[in-house]
Amino acid sequence: MELNDLVSRTWEENILFNVLLELTYQCNLDCFFCYNDRSLQGKPLGLKRYQELLHELAGMGVLNLILSGGEPLAHPDFWNIGALARELGFVIRIKSNGHALRPDVARRLKDEVAPFIIDISLHGASAAVHDRQTRVPGSFKRLMQNLEGLREQGLRVKLNATLTSWNEHQLDAMHELADNLGLLLQVDPQVTPRDDGDRTPQTIRASDAGLQRLEELLRKRNPQAGPSCDGMESSTGDAKHCGTGSSSLAIDPYGNVYPCVALRRSLGNLHEQSVCDIWHGNPVLEELRGAMREVARQVRVLEKNGNPVRFCPGQAHNLSGNPAQIYPAATQTLSLSIKANQNSRHPG
């Protein structure tokens, strides 16, 4: 069975397979476009509750565990949580800004947590651009040093970037930097609002020219690439648009449970319920599973000549309250993709 077949099966059979834990919203950087709602109030999950949760998730058959934040390493119990996750046999993905991943920390990460991969945020190909977005001087230089240390430890790393008006002129250079480092770079074309609805981050969304250049680069570098959602690989299945509501959950630092990291519609809280109880028979999840079939139908209508629509139900929900509502940016990406396709066939 190929990975795509497995992913499709989890979507179709509503098998919880991926869970993202936002361990903390604390961070050692201050990125301008960060989507975290740092004003959110609540009682943080304690170590004991995390331990219970991990045992429960393992028993439910969850394989993929994503440790995120904020900066997950900023959580005081990160090492305990990571070590237990390893012991319970999760495939661990860590989403980090890399700022704290000095060689000694990288070594400890390898020895105690043994992550499958570390997704590290890259904001530019130069200190001027990268540090402008992180708002921490010296963060680019430190990241480059830390990446070398991670490589020496043999840890698998992927670079993640969000395309903005501040870094789009360095898009090619960022790819070249990633190539020189021997790392894959994944670029998200869309800046999302903060989880509290604040649209300030979107004031630096990329221009049409920047988005088009990204489409051209994607087509040139990987013609088979399709939309890739956080924590999931794209699937060849067409019955549902994505795994939100069907195979994934996201949990914030206060125990609020969501269908995915982008779709902030609460399913329940771990201070009051078990994750198993939240997952089974939840009417919101049932509604979403139906909505994702409807989205898949809409997207198929929109997609022409193999050009993908980059649609996120989470963004749709945040913009309109309807996770199946196609929003302008998704179809804009379609038109840019068509244009990039035409350019690749008729260059110059």
Binding site: L6, R9, E13, I15, F17, G61, V62, L63, F90, A114
Partner: peptide, 25 residues
């Protein structure tokens, strides 16, 4: 081996070899 991760999913064993990112079902 220590670098192997696995779960039983819908009656099948999903095995991930973390050393080479291979998936076996």
């Amino acid at each position: 081996p220590d670098h192997i991760r696995w779960r039983k999913v819908a009656g099948e064993a999903v095995i991930v070899d973390q050393s080479n990112a291979e998936l076996i079902v």
